[in-house]
Structures are given as structure tokens and as C-alpha cells.
Design a protein around this nucleic acid. Sequence first.
DNA 1: CTACTAACTATCCAGTGGGTTAATTAGCCG
DNA 2: CGGCTAATTAACCCACTGGATAGTTAGTAG
Lengths: 221, 221
Amino acid sequence: MTTVEEPARSGGRLRDAARTRAEILDVATKEFARAGYAGARVDEIAARTRTTKRMIYYYFGGKEQLFTAVLERAYSVIRQAEQELDVEHLDPVAAIRRLAELTFDHHEEHPDFIRLVSIENIHEAEHIAASEELARIGSPALDVISRILESGRKSGLFTADVDAVDLHAMISSFCFFRVANRHTFGALFGRDLVAADQREHYRAMLGDMVIAYLTADRTAD
Amino acid sequence: MTTVEEPARSGGRLRDAARTRAEILDVATKEFARAGYAGARVDEIAARTRTTKRMIYYYFGGKEQLFTAVLERAYSVIRQAEQELDVEHLDPVAAIRRLAELTFDHHEEHPDFIRLVSIENIHEAEHIAASEELARIGSPALDVISRILESGRKSGLFTADVDAVDLHAMISSFCFFRVANRHTFGALFGRDLVAADQREHYRAMLGDMVIAYLTADRTAD
DNA sequence: CTACTAACTATCCAGTGGGTTAATTAGCCG
DNA sequence: CGGCTAATTAACCCACTGGATAGTTAGTAG
């Protein structure tokens, strides 16, 4: 996320389209994540920017397209992180655990992204569907998972019959729920799923779960 | 106005406070689940009801309290379902699998409830926190899980060191994600997590995952 | 039957919110 | 330096929205 925090136009040009655009996106990301799509206010986004509301319409066209642009940028960040995955030099068990941990870390570090995804699901992914950019790209992580799974299955370590997409769903669900539902879960069960001192506990739990699933002894069935 | 416009208020009296209240809650549940808290319109809720907008303020006080009432009723439904859990006559492994499957089924059958929970998390569970009713009650399922875990650990079948709350989180995360994130997941990865012909696949996957985690051979660590 | 109250209807209102019109200026190119 | 355009600003618009006011009627207790 290319955060713009220039101290009030000092140094740079007064009129910088790229900077203005980026600043609007930064503020809009926070505002949409905070209040939801309908709850976010274009006026409020403009007010927190060094520009005016008219600029939002000038650059993005409207609230809907602004939200789509926010989503596109948010997804591009995780796509990029996934492209830097480097776990294939490890043995399959260690590689999967490492991958799960990286997913875990990424979710923890980007709560705004998780909120945006929740919001987009409330709207039935209509903005993703309308975005060529988002509809096109898949997930680099899937290729990595595929290769690890294949190698693990070949060596006889992995017994589970899953494909990369399903395993990705399994890993994501745990990471996503922990961050996305921490408020209702905390309020109802009195346990903070993202408490700092429980971080390692849940990180290990995720890895244990995925490895146990993949390597379970299925001859006993 | 003698011309009858309505099918004359099914059955009962014309003025029925309980029926009117319930009808408002029904419609409000759908509307909030559909559009989010800020996106839902009090006018729209009223219009879909046989009563008027004024009645919403008469019975609930305002939009915020209406949403809280919607949440309270939604949670009371799952609380009730959990109270009917009857799995403790099974052996621990079968009991946990059955419990996971019931959770799986409940999530699938109540997509509106899942949406409301997502929405409430966007608002950081402020309505739950403000509701005595919701803050008070826990989850009957937790007691059931506790007892199964204890019996499974005593008999040496379960090796994992988890408590009921964490196991509940693990099971819920899979079930919740599958329903809540089906739109973005489907749009990005081209896989419908709630496709009817994949239902048994994911149901089994959940059970396998939880059992594998609980019974994994931990001597090899 | 009467009177009283809970249940209900009709209508209005002030603030808000997404979007727009039109005028202004910085920066660059020749 | 003059002129052109992208970037920017200020002010306005009006449909909508949560909420409020005030008046009306069904049901019932006595």
C-alpha cells in the first residue's frame, strides 16, 4: 500500500495527479473499511484528503467505481506478497506449514483488507465481477500450493484427496474468521482471537490442523 | 375506504401487536442482511410490511434498536438449535464429527444469519455489546464440546491440546467462511463453495479436518 | 354502552449525501 | 513568454432518509 504522507505539499508539485489519486485511494480504503460501502461518505473521504469531493468524481467517476478501485489496489497488494512466496525448497510438510503461517501473518497485518472483503461479500462480489482487472487474475499462491501438494502426495506423506483451491479455502477460512469475526466472537465467548499473547497459539493451531488433515492415517477408515 | 386491498390480515385480529412486531422483524432481517446496516432503509422495511414506518419507531424506537432486535432474534434461533444437540451417546470421534456436521448444516441453512454476523463485525459488535440479552448468553454448544473433548482425551483418542472455545472457532471458521465468502471466493477462483453437488465433499472435509487435528499422532513431534 | 388505551395511519420536515455546474489556476510546450 | 489543457476549487442541487407531529380507530374493561 503506497501510503502518501507528504507534509502538506512541501517539496513536490502542487498539482500531481498520481499523488492526488493515491491519496484519495488511501483515505477511501480506510473509510470504506471502517463504515462499509453504504456507510462510507464521499464527503467524509474528501474532507480527509487534501483535495475536494469534485476530484473523486474527476478521477474515479463515482462512489461505486471508487470502491472498485479500492478493492483492486487491496487485492494487488496480496497478489504481490504471494508472488514472493519462497517455500518450495522445503520439504512438503514444512512448506505447507510455512505457507499457512504466511497466510496467517498476512491476514493479521491487513485487517482493513479483510473488512473490505467482508463488505464486498455483503454486496455479492458485484464490484469484483464488474472489474476486468480483478476477474482476470487468480492467485499465485494456488500454483505454489499445487506443486507442494503434488510433491507431498508423490512422496506418500500426504494422504488427503484435496486440490489446491480447497486447501487454500481451508487455510484462508481459519485466518479470515479469526480477524473478521473477532468482535462478535469476543463479545459472545469472551475470548480475543487476536490477542497478542495468543498469536503463537493460533498460528501453531492452524499449522497443526492443516498438516494433520493432509497426513492423517487413512488406512484405518 | 371500503375497498379491500389486503387479503384481510391472515386469520387473526386486525390489531395484533405480536404479529406486527414479528412481521417487522422478519422484513428487517432480510433487508439488513441484504444491504448492510447503513444500506438498509427504514422506509423500505416499512413498505414491505403491512404496517407503516411509524410502527417501527413505535415498537423499536429507531433503526439502531431495530437492528439490535433483529440480531437478538437471529442468535436466539441458533441458541435453540444448539440446545437440541444430542450427540453425547456417541463415541467422542463420532460425536465431534456429528457436531461439526450440524454446525455445517446450520450455517448452510441460515445465510441471512451469517450476513448479519458479518455486518455486526463491520460495526465491531457494538450492538451485541449494547444488548444485555446477547451479552449474557453464551453458547450451549460449548458445554457439549467441553464434555466430548474431556471424554475423548480421557480415553486417549484425542491428543490435541485445545479447549472448547478454540475448537468451536475452528469448526465455525470453516463453516462461516464457506457461506460468507462464497461470492468473492467464487469470483476470484471460479469455485462455488456452496454448490449443491459439492456439499458432501465439504461436509466430509470439515469432519476429516477436525478429527485429524484432534487425533493426530503427536509422539513424532 | 361508554370510555379509555394500545395499535395504527397520514403527512410533514430538516439535514444529509451523491452528484453536478461552472469558474479558476498551475504547469508545460512551442 | 503566451497559450493551452489537465488539475483543482467553490458553490449549488434536489432526491432521499431517519425521525417527528398529530390525529384516528380497533379492542376491551367496567
